[in-house]
Design a binder for these strands. Structure first.
Lengths: 164, 164
DNA sequence: CAAAACTGCTTGCATAATACAATCAGTTTT
DNA sequence: AAAACTGATTGTATTATGCAAGCAGTTTTG
């Protein structure tokens, strides 16, 4: 993973940044799970990322401009990670990847309900979600609609359905 | 890259198959460059994939069901690789990734003109392109519209523009 | 018809990425 | 004061990638 610039193709350049097994997982958890701190990302991840890999990816994503890192005022040791516009702009990519995965791979209902909503919601929903992420991560005014809330409610309903 | 199934999340499962630096490059070249043979993929790739990596990726993509491999009737040693429906269904993912890369990364005009067309064309164009790929790779009847031709023409015009 | 070029790979070796467990110094909570 | 929590780092082992060379069989070329 060096910044070799193998070619100026948009697909290639995207893969040079995101083409590994963990970068998009970290961004997914920040975006859809609202995880902003190291330990949250480390321990609440379904997939179990290793701490050295997480540290490396966070550093790299900051360097590439997809996220920022700042001190958390509430705790002298806490670092707060936030999505940038570049990170938020991945919403449609996540939507399409989720749709593809849902169609062809052995997903679990619980973990794919958000992907289903996002696929059905289409570009309007993606834009509303991006607006909300700009509010949460970039200090923009909070919009009326909470796509995050819709996704989270659907997820929690699916969990409750399974449990009960 | 083992089939560990870290989780049933559609994003994660997609990354377990496509989350590396080469799989999507190979698929891109098959899809947009119409490369169907090993040497074509090896030597005509902008990025310069190594032969052992290419061999591994082709094997893996066949195993995962994104492409198929068959004997080329015209040459006893040639293997012909074709996209499956699962591979063709990545068209929207490529479109969204290309759009993101074009917006945030230092793409070259020549190599991003196809991404621009695909982004502007939207879901209708993606569907037409998928139809055409089904004809080329899966023996379906050839549709009237050739998105491949449109993309190729735009690319060649961009190359000519730079050269002359 | 022999030489050259082409076919899809494989092999060997060096470097880089990933996984896993343990650890750490400072901070906050109990 | 002890325990738990903070964002990491370190060490070691395994796996992936990159690079160059080679290989047996096939087709093209002179």
């Amino acid at each position: 993973m060096k910044d070799s610039n193998r070619s100026g193709c948009p697909i290639n350049l995207t893969l040079e940044i995101l083409g590994d097994r963990w970068s998009l997982i970290v961004l997914r958890d920040m975006m859809f799970g609202n995880r902003r701190h190291f330990r949250e990302l480390l321990t609440k991840s379904e997939e179990g990322i290793a701490s050295n890999i997480l540290a490396d990816r966070l550093k790299r994503l900051v360097a590439e401009g997809l996220i920022t890192k700042e001190d958390d005022p509430s705790h002298k040791q806490k670092a707060l990670y936030s999505l940038t516009e570049m990170g938020i702009a991945l919403v449609p990519v996540f939507a399409m990847m989720g749709a593809w995965g849902r169609r062809f791979l052995p997903v679990t209902e619980e973990l794919s309900i958000r992907a289903e909503l996002l696929e059905d919601g289409g570009p309007d929903m993606w834009a509303a979600f991006a607006d909300e992420l700009r509010a949460i991560h970039m200090g923009a005014p909070m919009p009326a609609r909470s796509v995050f809330g819709e996704l989270q409610a659907a997820y929690e309903a699916a969990v409750a359905r399974r449990a009960g």
